[in-house]
Design a protein around this nucleic acid. Structure first.
Lengths: 135, 135
DNA sequence: TTAACTCCTTTCAAAAATAAAGTCAAACGT
DNA sequence: ACGTTTGACTTTATTTTTGAAAGGAGTTAA
């Protein structure tokens, strides 16, 4: 399905998604139009889902990075999920998981104060364990 | 420091990092060169760290997505860290965290068999708890 | 008032993207 | 064995985008 050249292309686009098709072509020993055609196919097949940027959240004012393990006491998760949705400025991911906990919440905060408020908020719906990411 | 227009630019680039400066300019009510100048500044300030793509890992053959909580028994983490480095084809992130566990490992596998092998491998160095991401 | 900045626009030459045409080789049916 | 189709590529030529340069408008400070 995917050949060596496709992998090289994905690798280059991962490193720099704004590379020109001409330069991408050179890197993978193809002409610009050929590289472009490959990329379009990768998009169509859904292998490339998105072109995006990595933002330095600390410089954006969100230096506190945390993982919160959620243990829902109530079988109805909706109140928790609604609350999370309302607090989405802090939430990076909310994974439903199998294992000990029910959800794994990755989030970012401007300060510990706001983290504290957030945790106070969710404790109305669920119990949790907190891990702060150090690096 | 960052104004409303910068936030709009970051938002648009997050959604599509390959947008042309001309189109980006239109979206944020600026000329192409003005948008381009803003973007260059955001890069220089380190707010934009990287232009990258989101790859559908399932279509790449890595459908199993897991978070592994690592508890190091030994105060010397090096053997664990070296092992992780060797297994980097599976590892998305290896966060050092404060809290109950020592590291939070986000990883992806082609199958449960390979997840099993990986876990067998790390159990030589550390103990762990596994969470499989369902969605 | 004037000078120095900042941030923008417009203009235009150079570079890149894209559409189109043509080449080549492998696969397939007759 | 021959012609046809298909897929992936290159080259060429047109269109579009980029990025440099020049200049204007608003702000601040001497």
């Amino acid at each position: 399905m995917l050949d060596r050249t496709d992998f090289l292309i994905l690798d280059e686009l991962s490193k720099n998604s704004r590379i020109t098709m001409k330069d991408l072509g050179e890197k993978v020993h193809l002409s610009g139009p050929a590289a472009s055609a490959r990329v379009i196919k990768l998009e169509e097949r859904g292998v490339i889902e998105d072109y995006t940027i990595k933002i330095n959240q600390a410089k954006m004012g969100y230096p506190v990075h945390a993982i919160v393990h959620i243990y829902t006491k109530n079988p109805n998760h909706q109140p928790y999920l609604s609350y999370i949705k309302k607090q989405n400025r802090y939430v990076v991911h909310n994974y439903k998981v199998s294992g000990e906990s029910c959800y794994l919440l990755e989030c970012r905060f401007p300060s510990n104060e706001e983290l504290d408020e957030f945790l106070t908020g969710i404790s109305n719906y669920v119990s949790y364990k907190l891990s702060i990411i150090i690096k």
